[in-house]
Amino acid sequence: GIDPFTGEAIAKFNFNGDTQVEMSFRKGERITLLRQVDENWYEGRIPGTSRQGIFPITYVDVIKRPL
């Protein structure tokens, strides 16, 4: 089901994660935001896939912030 505490964002740019914990994505992908890790990073996942990880806040347009 849908978790009411998650947020939502759209990727503004392609992001290629450097490490296992970073999640790569392509511009235009819809991302579920799980939490804000710190002032620069979100943790999120791509709905319908097993992809999950952290990524820079500046790479996405936030539609709804996670609670």
Results as ranks from 00 to 15, higher is better:
residue 30 R to V: 11
residue 36 Q to M: 10
residue 37 V to C: 08
residue 33 L to W: 02
residue 31 I to Y: 00
residue 26 R to C: 13
residue 66 P to W: 03
residue 1 G to E: 12
residue 1 G to Y: 08
residue 20 Q to M: 12
residue 6 T to M: 13
residue 43 E to Q: 07
residue 64 K to S: 07
residue 45 R to I: 10
residue 41 W to S: 07
residue 56 P to E: 03
residue 32 T to N: 08
residue 59 Y to M: 11
residue 56 P to I: 03
residue 39 E to K: 09
residue 36 Q to E: 10
residue 5 F to I: 10
residue 65 R to N: 12
residue 38 D to W: 07
residue 67 L to C: 14
residue 66 P to K: 02
residue 54 I to D: 01
residue 33 L to F: 04
residue 9 A to G: 10
residue 50 S to D: 13
residue 5 F to A: 12
residue 39 E to L: 09
residue 6 T to R: 10
residue 30 R to P: 06
residue 59 Y to C: 10
residue 51 R to E: 03
residue 21 V to R: 14
residue 62 V to Y: 05
residue 24 S to M: 04
residue 17 G to P: 06
residue 44 G to A: 02
residue 17 G to M: 04
residue 48 G to I: 02
residue 19 T to Q: 10
residue 27 K to E: 10
residue 46 I to A: 02
residue 14 N to T: 10
residue 65 R to K: 15
residue 30 R to N: 06
residue 39 E to R: 09
residue 29 E to V: 03
residue 26 R to S: 13
residue 45 R to W: 11
residue 31 I to W: 01
residue 34 L to M: 09
residue 48 G to L: 07
residue 67 L to M: 15
residue 66 P to S: 04
residue 55 F to C: 01
residue 19 T to G: 13
residue 6 T to W: 15
residue 29 E to M: 03
residue 3 D to I: 12
residue 45 R to V: 10
residue 42 Y to Q: 02
residue 1 G to L: 12
residue 63 I to D: 05
residue 7 G to M: 11
residue 67 L to I: 15
residue 6 T to A: 14
residue 56 P to F: 02
residue 25 F to V: 03
residue 52 Q to A: 09
residue 53 G to R: 00
residue 55 F to I: 08
residue 37 V to Y: 08
residue 1 G to N: 13
residue 52 Q to V: 09
residue 31 I to G: 00
residue 29 E to R: 02
residue 31 I to C: 02
residue 65 R to I: 13
residue 48 G to A: 06
residue 61 D to E: 13
residue 59 Y to N: 04
residue 42 Y to F: 12
residue 26 R to W: 10
residue 41 W to E: 02
residue 60 V to I: 08
residue 50 S to F: 09
residue 52 Q to I: 09
residue 31 I to L: 06
residue 13 F to M: 14
residue 21 V to Q: 15
residue 41 W to R: 07
residue 27 K to N: 05
residue 36 Q to Y: 07
residue 35 R to D: 04
residue 46 I to T: 01
residue 16 N to W: 11
residue 58 T to G: 12
residue 23 M to Q: 01
residue 49 T to C: 03
residue 42 Y to H: 04
residue 25 F to E: 00
residue 56 P to W: 02
residue 13 F to K: 12
residue 23 M to A: 02
residue 3 D to A: 11
residue 49 T to A: 03
residue 9 A to L: 05
residue 19 T to P: 06
residue 59 Y to F: 11
residue 46 I to D: 00
residue 10 I to K: 06
residue 44 G to W: 02
residue 57 I to A: 12
residue 41 W to L: 07
residue 54 I to S: 03
residue 57 I to V: 12
residue 67 L to N: 14
residue 27 K to M: 09
residue 6 T to V: 14
residue 54 I to L: 10
residue 22 E to I: 06
residue 61 D to Y: 13
residue 55 F to N: 00
residue 40 N to F: 14
residue 14 N to H: 10
residue 65 R to T: 12
residue 1 G to V: 12
residue 60 V to S: 01
residue 64 K to G: 06
residue 16 N to H: 13
residue 49 T to E: 06
residue 55 F to H: 00
residue 5 F to S: 12
residue 54 I to H: 06
residue 34 L to F: 06
residue 37 V to H: 07
residue 66 P to T: 04
